[in-house]
Simulated scan of single mutants.
Amino acid sequence: MRRLLDVPAPAKLNLFLHITGRRDDGYHLLQSVFMLIDWCDLLHFERRDDGGIDREDIGPGLASGALPAEDLSVLAAKALRDATGCTQGVRIGLEKRLPAEAGMGGGSSDAATTLLALNRLWGLGLTRRELATIGLRLGADVPFFLGGRNAWVEGAGEQITPLHLAPARFVVVKPPTGASTQRIFGSPELKRDTKTATIQGFAANDAGNKTDAMGRGFQASGALDIQEILAFGHNDLQPVAEAICPEVGHCIQWLKSQGLQSRMTGSGTAVFAHLAQAKNLTPAPGGWTVRECANMDAHPLLDWCTD
């Protein structure tokens, strides 16, 4: 095998994102539900026998926003080679469809797809757990994408519990302005003390207060209802992001004018709303990206390696 073409790297939405504290090393502690959606970057991989690793933008999509040598897909390839002693190389073609600084995990997903693809292309045979150990050094979201399932995520992003979510559709809106993760998390205005919840309460239909038992109305034996999760949570990063990028608030107000309640996803400037039924949206302001998406039950490359 010398080539792998049109390999998907799906985005994620955070149905909520609570910051519950901060570690001594500066990493923030979070709790969130990460959900895969069917909006994907596409990557092409061609094996090189000379050991070189490079990347180019291809197709009609967006530019990646990073210098090729600093792109997470390139860093992932180098990290995988360093961890295994592999001497092969790769040429990576990236068709960027996900907007940058959106909070949708685009770069981390590209890195995860690169690890999965090169594990196959280079014949390394690493397990998902071994790839996740490498991936965590690249970014806190990378292990989630390698895990391949929608999940309850906590700690610094490394504690992942798979969840089964009910099928649903969403509209995602991204203004042209972005906001860096570092700037948002570094703000002194960021709320960092949301009360910690439990996964047991989240999934087991506890009868307690929603601030300490997230599972109110959920059934552990079936798919978790999207609207119930949205009713529970919020995004602690949203007020900071709105101060940095007022267009986040403009997107939320535009969706409200369409009869939709929305919130920001992750640590970027994209917002989303759950579509309980089909909607005909009025035209958005110029420069905004508006896309209707569905959630995914599993990553398209879930079976590309063993656990």
Rank of each mutant, 00 (worst) to 15 (best):
Q258L: 00
G215A: 11
F232G: 07
L237H: 08
S221P: 00
L224Y: 04
E228K: 14
E242N: 07
G233I: 13
D212W: 13
E228N: 11
H250K: 13
P239E: 06
A241W: 00
N235D: 08
Q253E: 15
C245E: 01
H250Y: 03
L260W: 05
L230R: 03
A220S: 13
E247W: 00
A223R: 14
Q258K: 05
V240D: 00
F232L: 15
G217P: 09
L224V: 04
I226G: 05
A220V: 10
V240L: 02
L230K: 01
H234N: 03
A223T: 01
A243D: 08
G215K: 02
G259I: 14
R216Y: 15
F232V: 07
D236A: 10
I252Y: 01
K256G: 13
M214Q: 12
L255E: 05
E228T: 13
I244M: 04
G217Q: 01
G259V: 07
Q227R: 15
A243H: 12
L230I: 08
Q258F: 01
P246S: 06
H234E: 09
G215F: 06
W254F: 08
Q258V: 01
L237E: 01
H250E: 14
E228S: 14
P246A: 11
P246H: 05
S221L: 05
L230S: 00
Q227F: 12
I226M: 03
Q219N: 14
A241N: 06
Q261T: 15
A223P: 09
G249C: 08
Q219R: 15
S257K: 10
A220D: 10
G222W: 04
G222Q: 14
A213M: 08
D212R: 11
V240Q: 07
A223H: 03
C245W: 02
F218D: 04
F218V: 14
L260D: 06
E247D: 11
D236N: 07
P239V: 02
I244W: 02
D236Y: 00
D225I: 10
S262F: 05
Q219M: 12
